[in-house]
């Protein structure tokens, strides 16, 4: 299932959180060879994890980590502005209506549908929380993956060549993408909404009922 958890609530999901940071070390350091910090517990963390970001985590049936990603609003410090100024030509992206998505990670044990479920979670955030845009930096191999998942970004700019080529993309919400991604991920919109409501609360039951309950 999908869980939406702010960093300061990860302590209630200690095992899941540990597995996420370990899988991030595995993906970004071991498999992709990025220059990331891995601590004594084998966890990969950076300074943005200390800013109370929102994580979306795919929890596998046995309670372990299947995949995850991280969101922060571009009104505060974000990687695209701090680390990749070349990609914005020195114009920092800053708006409460644009969130940055980083550390898109899949566990080695994850089934093929986890990436699709995470993409659906991104659309669920956009739909429910009135966030029309996400920004993100990604490498070339992701372009095809986003397309196959059914939700491609508009490429704003790119730098580097060949395998080192990275791009800044902007995703914009649209309802067709929501249904397309749900179908490809084989998660019904109803179930996806239910997972979202389990984390964020539901707008369906009126206050008066809840007051009585």
């Amino acid at each position: 299932m999908l869980r939406y958890i702010y960093a300061d609530d990860l302590k209630a999901h200690a095992k899941l959180a540990h597995a996420m940071f370990v899988d991030r070390a595995d993906q970004f350091q071991t498999r992709l060879g990025w220059d990331v910090q891995v601590d004594d517990n084998g966890e990969e963390r950076d300074q943005y994890d200390a800013l109370n970001p929102l994580y979306v985590i795919w929890e596998m049936p046995d309670g372990s980590h299947g995949g995850s990603m991280r969101f922060l609003p571009t009104t505060g410090p974000v990687m695209v502005n701090d680390v990749f100024p070349e990609l914005t030509s020195g114009n920092p992206i800053s708006s409460p209506l644009i969130w940055e998505c980083t550390r898109f990670c899949l566990s080695r044990e994850a089934s093929g549908s986890v990436a699709g479920a995470l993409t659906l979670a991104g659309l669920e955030i956009m739909r429910n929380l009135a966030i029309p845009h996400f920004a993100g930096v990604f490498d070339r191999r992701m372009v095809r993956i986003y397309r196959s998942l059914g939700f491609s970004p508009e490429i704003i700019s790119s730098m580097g060549t060949g395998r080192d080529r990275i791009s800044l993309g902007l995703w914009e919400y649209n309802v067709q993408a929501y249904h397309r991604v749900a179908q490809r991920a084989e998660v019904s919109p109803q179930l996806s909404q239910r997972w979202f409501d389990l984390s964020f609360g539901s707008t369906v039951s009126p206050l008066s009922l809840r007051r009585a309950g």
């Binding site: 929102l54 409460p96 929380l129 409501d197 609360g201 707008t203 039951s205 809840r210 007051r211 309950g213």
Partner: peptide, 22 residues
């Protein structure tokens, strides 16, 4: 410490002190 907009219906109004506050 959050950054997403919050519809009050999503909040937990069930604990007794919260119901009295409401």
């Amino acid at each position: 410490q959050r950054f997403h907009p919050v519809d009050w219906r999503r909040l937990d109004w069930s604990p007794k002190p919260v119901r009295e506050f409401f």
